[in-house]
């Protein structure tokens, strides 16, 4: 990550992803309040629609990026030892990457199978 990305870009990324997450959560709240899926088949059909699949994938991407910037901020603040910080951030990066691949697999393979 370049020095540029480390400062302003991380900050603006956190804001944009935060706004998107908030909007998507509102969408989910509205959906479950006023048009809750009746059963699993109904829910699968909803998620399988291209618009929902794409916005949900963007949502998971936003969550992962948002989490990455936030955890990195905490690590920079509290983990002064460079090796410790590198190890912690590597572990977090792998966890987030794994979660992202898992979410993509569910959205693309399970729902659309």
């Amino acid at each position: 990550m370049s020095r540029q990305a480390a400062g302003m870009r991380a900050w603006i990324l956190q804001r944009i992803t935060g706004a998107y997450i908030a909007l998507f959560v509102i969408y989910l709240a509205v959906l479950f309040t006023f048009a809750a899926p009746a059963d699993h088949a109904d829910w699968s059909a909803t998620v399988a629609s291209p618009a929902v699949t794409i916005t949900a994938m963007l949502f998971f991407l936003a969550v992962l990026l948002h989490a990455w910037v936030g955890v990195r901020d905490i690590a920079i603040d509290y983990l002064g030892h460079t090796g410790l910080r590198l190890a912690a951030l590597t572990a977090v990066a792998l966890f987030l990457l794994g979660s992202g691949i898992w979410a993509a697999k569910i959205l693309l393979l399970t729902v659309h199978s």
């Binding site: 020095r3 480390a6 302003m8 991380a10 900050w11 920079i76």
Partner: peptide
Amino acid sequence: EGPYKLYR
């Protein structure tokens, strides 16, 4: 710029 000077 950078993660420290301003963005902490």
